[in-house]
Nucleic acid binder design. Structure first.
Lengths: 395, 395
DNA sequence: CTACTTTGGCAACGGTGTTGCCAAAGTGCA
DNA sequence: TGCACTTTGGCAACACCGTTGCCAAAGTAG
């Protein structure tokens, strides 16, 4: 790490604290204490960030007997990001500002069997429409933002039709959440079951080319987990998504854990019943197979018990104290699943005599959570929230 | 992070590269490339470290047409650490130098039922003896080391009988590896089954007081994993220890992953056969129970299959590509376990179409591995190898 | 012996966080 | 209303980090 690196690191630290505080604002002294820097250093950093238009004053705190603290906050309009959740039959895209607040949304039907080009076209259309929204919003609302220099956009390549307006609107990039295996670093899909045309397709590169914007891709569960992590639900937790399949996103120590090849969180085929019923993956006794079979025959209690068993394994293995449940199947019977999974996990924690209780809850954020998390794939690096323990990401 | 922090960070980067290279040595230019710093910055850092006695020149590389590179290496005698593996019936202590090479060993019989004080006494005796060895070795071998200022030892407290000689010998601290649950951060044991006296005992504090040296404690599997990580086996891997119980140590992204409360790696009670045979922990179908039962009836193939199933779960969940097996039970039939576990894991990787093969091997290091890893609990921080994603360790 | 390559230190520099100091802006009490 | 006190936060000088430009040292190649 060199001096520019140190500068960026500390700036990200400050920005992350401001982001975490939301609209309320944080005082300089609190920033100093929480970053470990001296108040004077924080003042300098804040002055720089104010000059770049990223940070602004947000009123004052009540005096405690002296000069009242000036509160600071992020400037929401200093940057935007688009998040796209692509499923096999639908696409959800959101536009969020620098603080992560959704300020635009587009939904569209897609069909993977229509071919790659068709789906890319729909995605480009949705993103373009949202970038237009950002452009309009900026022009109407925040006066100075369009004019100030955005420190994030190198803008090296030939401008596309979109790029001009995107840059003007301060759209920093596009995050794309996809089901199934892929490579986060290279942005290439793998083994899209049933759609061989998609296998190995360099989706990130193609979209970046078409949009003229940086594009980051990740698994949908990782995106959801990232969104939850930035929302501050916990330092470490697991997000379990039970929909048409079963997957997980792991947040360990504040960052999404993706493993060596973005494969971490492959939760559906955890074997919890050796020599059990055959799963479509070829193995026997996978949680996903047990869960979905139980759901299919209406036995939700048993589905929750299977899910709870696998969740308990995960909790014990990684020593985390929060499990968040999401996905359509969970959504259809939230209380039942929370109670069922919670019971198994709690029983196990009780037996192992662990101290703090492990929380099992429904993931906040609802249906848009994945798309919002996808947008955070773009914003997170600004706040020093790149993924934890993921060497391939260090490039 | 401030400037002294940056300085320390970069120094640790350089020291870690030198450690990784072993006695062979590394050139300044290679250090520059691998740290991302300029050659001049590396020169300055190396000059500081040479002044502190931590780094020395180690000959020259053959010329490539110009001035030959001066190779650099760690000075082994610049610091020592003691690693102690404490089991219920035995204690192994080793003295290692800064490069991790073992230069002394003590073994002793202990009995937990003799009480805490008795065991502490044995440990203190073994450590003291080894510190004496270091003292002697230093006086005989490396001439300047005793005299040079050790930057690691604040030496604030009242000197104990031992502390004088320990400081003189450059012993930086003691690492202690223990079976079962404990708190790495506070150094307190939990739930030592069958020995209630040990429960909640502040072992780290007591030992530190008695020895007058810093003491770090950790689970035995974590210590072993740390040793393997520093030996450079892989960036991410799992160490599975099958002895009288079954545990795991996880290394994710270069550092030991301990979770929120040092509980990560609780592998033995991963449920792989829901509603299976009752385990002594109260659950049903734990790997440990299945494995040990199979071993007890002589069916090692089945034990390996159960272990392989759980290992496969872990590999898929964390996306790692190396599993190392250790422990007495594995040692008794190494090839069988490697083949059995490897077959299950490979079969699963094949089904999931993963690219790179997952390696399953016997952990190198043998019986002393845990004690050596325990010593690295002291040395690792010097090389910037504090645990990954472990917030409680940031203090 | 000369020309060239490569290494690595010296000196000056820009920029980081830190320290010492003090103006600004409040409260509290006489 | 006025003075003392507290707290905030900027200004200026500073120490120290990595960087840049330069060049001596130490080899090879012909």
């Amino acid at each position: 790490m060199n001096l520019p690196g140190l500068r960026g690191h500390n700036a990200a630290l400050v920005l992350d604290l401001l982001r975490g505080a939301g609209g309320g604002g944080v005082g300089r002294l609190e920033l100093a204490e929480r970053t470990g820097l001296t108040p004077q250093a924080v003042s300098k950093i804040v002055a720089r960030l104010r000059g770049e238009g990223l940070v602004a004053e947000a009123g004052r705190r009540a005096s405690t007997g002296g000069k009242p603290q000036t509160l600071l906050r992020l400037v929401p309009g200093a940057g935007y990001a688009v998040g796209v959740q692509l499923e096999r039959d639908a696409l959800v895209a959101v536009l969020v500002d620098l603080t992560g607040v959704v300020i635009g949304e587009r939904r569209a039907a897609v069909d993977f069997s229509d071919g790659v080009d068709s789906v890319v076209e729909v995605a480009v259309g949705a993103v373009s429409a949202l970038v237009g929204t950002a452009s309009a919003g900026v022009e109407a609302g925040a006066p100075r933002t369009g004019g100030c220099a955005h420190p994030f956009r190198p803008a090296e390549r030939l401008p596309t039709a979109l790029e001009g307006s995107a840059a003007a609107a301060g759209v920093l990039g596009v995050g794309l959440a996809l089901p199934g295996p892929l490579d986060h670093a290279s942005g290439v899909l793998h083994r899209v079951t049933g759609f061989p045309e998609w296998d190995g397709y360099p989706l990130r590169e193609v979209l970046a080319e078409r949009l003229g914007l940086p594009v980051a891709v990740d698994k949908d569960t990782n995106a959801a987990a990232l969104g939850l992590a930035l929302a501050g639900v916990a330092e470490s937790f697991a997000y379990l998504h039970l929909g048409t399949g079963l997957g997980a996103g792991l947040v360990l120590g504040g960052g999404v854990y993706r493993g060596a090849r973005t494969g971490a969180g492959e939760f559906g085929h955890q074997v919890v019943r050796m020599d059990g019923p055959l799963c479509e993956c070829g193995a026997r006794g996978c949680v996903e197979a047990l869960c979905l079979a139980a759901v299919a025959r209406g036995d939700l209690d048993e589905a929750a018990r299977a899910l709870g068993t696998a969740a308990g394994n995960l909790v014990a293995l990684l020593d985390i104290d929060l499990v968040l449940l999401g996905g359509r199947t969970v959504g259809a019977a939230e209380e039942l699943f929370v109670r069922g999974v919670g019971a198994v996990v709690a029983e196990r924690a009780r037996r192992e005599g662990a101290g703090a209780a492990v929380g099992v809850r429904v993931a906040p954020g609802g249906e848009r959570g994945v798309a919002e998390g996808a947008a955070q794939l773009v914003l997170a690096p600004l706040f020093g929230r790149a993924s934890a323990a993921f060497p391939a990401n260090r490039t």
